[in-house]
């Protein structure tokens, strides 16, 4: 008999409440209730959602606890949201934060 593959949800025998959707750069993704934005993006296999002001290099979560500020994203037009701290809400529109995030389309241009 083959055993089910190990997963984080399986490890703690999670029975989450129904998932909901949000969009990331136009893509529809699902999040589980209570997950942070960074967790929902990781669950979708996404590890970068910001580009730096200087070199335009991709970044995502690093410290995981709100200290490094590498994980900044633009949520519903508001830039500089720490994805490792903010919870995803149903229907959120999340975009990659470009540079300072204060560009014309709420997405930002490198400053």
């Amino acid at each position: 008999m083959s055993r089910a593959p190990r997963t984080p949800l399986g490890l703690v025998r999670a029975q989450p409440e129904p998932p909901y959707t949000f969009t990331f750069d136009g893509r529809t993704l699902t999040a589980l209730p209570g997950q942070t934005l960074a967790a929902a993006l990781w669950a979708a296999g996404i590890t970068s959602w910001r580009t730096t002001r200087g070199g335009g290099a991709p970044r995502g979560a690093f410290c995981g606890i709100g200290v490094c500020h590498d994980c900044l994203a633009t949520v519903d037009g508001r830039p500089n949201q720490r994805a490792c701290l903010v919870a995803v809400r149903p229907g959120d529109t999340v975009t990659t934060q470009v540079g300072t995030g204060h560009g014309p389309d709420g997405k930002g241009t490198p400053s």
Binding site: P8, L11, Q35
Partner: peptide
Amino acid sequence: GAQAMLKSGLV
């Protein structure tokens, strides 16, 4: 950080 994300977000 990986530990923290796993413990809180199960990812």
